[in-house]
Simulated assay, not measured.
Amino acid sequence: MEKFAEKLSFLFRPLLSFRAKFPLLSFILTRLLTMLVILFFLGWALFALMALAPGDIVDQMMTQQIMSQASGTGGADRSNTKGLDEKQTAALRAEMGLDQPFTVQYFKWLKRVVVNHDLGVSLISRAPVSFLIRSRILNSVVLNLISLVFITIFSFLLGVCFSSKAGTKTDLAATFFALFFHAFPGILLLILFQLFASATSLFPVTAYPDFPFSEAQGRFVFSYAHHVFLPLLASFLGGVGGTMRTIRSTMLDQMGLPYIMAIRARGISEGRVYLAHAFRNTLNPYITGSANLLAGLFSGSLVLEIIFSYPGIGRLMYEAVLQQDVNLVLANSMFISSLVLAGMVISDILLAVVDPRIRYGKE
Results as ranks from 00 to 15, higher is better:
P128M: 05
Q217M: 14
A320E: 06
D210S: 13
R357V: 04
A291Y: 08
L328G: 05
S26F: 12
K362W: 06
D355V: 01
S337G: 01
G97L: 13
F162E: 09
Y208H: 11
M50W: 12
K362D: 07
L46Q: 11
L42I: 12
H182Y: 06
I133V: 06
H277C: 01
T175L: 09
S299K: 02
A70L: 04
E305V: 05
A70T: 13
R19H: 00
P285I: 14
A20I: 03
E270I: 12
E2Y: 12
F213Q: 08
S201P: 01
A234V: 15
L145C: 01
S79C: 11
R31D: 10
I349T: 10
F220T: 02
I358K: 04
L25N: 08
Q64E: 09
P356E: 01
G120C: 00
A197W: 00
Q105Y: 06
Q254P: 03
S214Y: 08
S122N: 03
T243K: 04
D99K: 14
V115C: 00
G271D: 09
Y286F: 14
F308H: 06
G256T: 14
I66Q: 01
A127C: 04
S68F: 00
S214G: 13
F177H: 00
P311V: 11
G241E: 02
Y318Q: 15
G312D: 13
S135C: 01
A127W: 02
A199Y: 09
A183D: 09
L119M: 00
P311R: 06
P185D: 11
M261R: 14
F308W: 15
L233C: 15
Y208K: 05
I57Q: 00
Y318E: 12
Y360P: 01
L316Q: 10
L179V: 01
G75P: 02
A262V: 07
F220P: 12
S299R: 03
C161V: 11
G120H: 00
H277Y: 10
F193W: 11
G361M: 11
V273T: 08
Y310T: 07
K169C: 04
V228Q: 08
T152S: 11
V303P: 06
Y106W: 09
I307C: 10
V142I: 07
S347W: 14
Q324L: 04
G55T: 04
F18V: 07
S164V: 10
L322R: 06
M244W: 07
L24M: 10
